[in-house]
Design a protein around this nucleic acid. Structure first.
Lengths: 266, 266
DNA sequence: TGGAGTATTCCATACTGTGGGATATCTGGG
DNA sequence: CCCAGATATCCCACAGTATGGAATACTCCA
């Protein structure tokens, strides 16, 4: 009856809050406004339950109902809180760095962090295109995710769903573990067509003082534009950006002290 | 025991969600990271209750705990959802308009909308300064709020707290009702020192097809810079911006058809 | 070394959230 | 014009979820 949302969830003593967050998540997944019944269907909730929760969110301004269609969409309070979150986390300082990186390399630059079993894109990218697809991607099938796993907590790796998205997606835990080892020794992750066919992506970590990846920076483009011969150059540009972001995004006491992981082409 | 948060709240059958939102709201009010016990104190919740709710929010990435201090702050999922909300509501298109208005007039330009008993600032302003004070202001004591009330639903006016913020704050419902009438006939709201002493603010509505204020645009500066002789000019600049925003923020079917309310200096 | 302020976990109880159902509205078609 | 289908909204008795007191573990500071 209940679908588990992430490999984190201790669903104890907080059912309604969990359900409320599930409702919110629907809006990250769908670019259109949603009807109440639609939301109930997507979350598997009873209509009246969904409706009650939606009303609370609407009264708080987290969601809003279109006066004409009565459909729900993300509301002003969320824009407000999001703006605060964005600022307080220093992401507005990251944006120009990413823009510069994108302009310099001609590729698309993304900044992401890990939330549960997903890489959540925080800055960069193209919202008009990516906003429709949603801003979170599975960890196992993206360069960003591999970096976050390789320099992070991948103990519970078997808890990840490892869903097959394309023909090339890694779905075997052991295979993934080897890939992560390769990523760690190479100093960067390379993806081609494992998440979206016809797209090549590289990613590098933004490391803290314990050598954990707090964020990841990715560059993606067509395989031709990102030809193997120029791969090292792309990775170095991304790494330079990542180093800058360590200063901009981490508080002084939590910055990497050791050297960046050296880049070694496979 | 329970403090009522807004003059909207049907607190029925959603206690935990309400409490969760109250916890979130604490972060909008305080610029610093907050400890769990601090949050429990501010919301009046039992420590264990607050902790449980905070854990759910943290697992979802709505909040995050500083790895060093274990204090809570706004998290990546909120930045993600906020970014989506910001974009989907077209607020990124409003930002340049407001920047232009601010540059042109030399004042600070804000865009806000109504959520419950508050005017929530969505774009413009200076986040570094305003982010510390919070992004929401009471309706009765700000030019933005007066506009949202004057061209909006002010039937439940007596339900507003009407808290006294400065010596000049309007605290009498009847007095406020007269002021709103004045605002409606003037076509704009003027505030001086009712919210913050030494600041003069004007605001105009962004109207929809039913002549409701969906948003409000404000300009604020020192009383000298915004001298009475030049007041009409400031109001006209703001009104021009508001007209532009009607096109940018409202869907085609919901745009004002009639003329803008004419501006009449008192 | 002790004490104050925390985070975190446990559990029996009671109150909150639940969902089935009934009603009101709306829309597009026949 | 009226009906069928889909939707928003409200109500209420029941069950199970959320609650908060208390106990433990941890960290910082004097």
């Amino acid at each position: 009856m209940d679908r588990d949302s992430a490999p984190t969830a201790p669903r104890e003593g907080a059912q309604s809050v969990h359900r409320t967050l599930a409702l919110l998540q629907c809006f990250a997944d769908s670019p259109q406004d949603l009807t109440g019944s639609d939301l109930a269907r997507r979350t598997g909730l009873a209509l009246s339950t969904a409706h009650r929760l939606l009303k609370v969110l609407t009264n708080a301004g987290i969601l809003e109902q279109d006066p004409a269609t009565a459909r729900y969409r993300l509301g002003p309070s969320l824009a407000e809180l999001g703006r605060l979150a964005y600022h307080r986390r220093g992401l507005h300082r990251a944006e120009p760095e990413l823009a510069e990186l994108a302009a310099h390399t001609g590729a698309t630059a993304d900044l992401a962090t890990r939330v549960g079993g997903h890489a959540v894109i925080l800055a960069g990218g193209s919202l008009d295109r990516d906003g429709a697809r949603g801003l979170r991607r599975p960890l196992h099938s993206t360069a960003l995710g591999k970096v976050l796993l390789a320099w992070g907590d991948n103990a519970d790796l078997t808890a990840l769903p490892l869903e097959q998205l394309t023909r090339r997606t890694i779905t075997d835990p052991q295979h993934l573990r080897e890939e992560l080892e390769r990523v760690r020794t190479a100093g960067f992750a390379l993806n081609e067509g494992e998440s979206t066919t016809g797209v090549r992506t590289i990613a590098v970590p933004v490391l803290d003082h314990t050598d954990q990846a707090r964020f990841a920076v990715a560059l993606r483009s067509s395989p031709e534009a990102m030809a193997s011969a120029r791969l090292a150059w792309f990775v170095e540009q991304a790494a330079a950006c990542a180093t800058a972001l360590e200063v901009l995004l981490l508080p002084p006491g939590q910055r990497r002290t050791g050297p960046r992981p050296p880049i070694a082409l496979p």
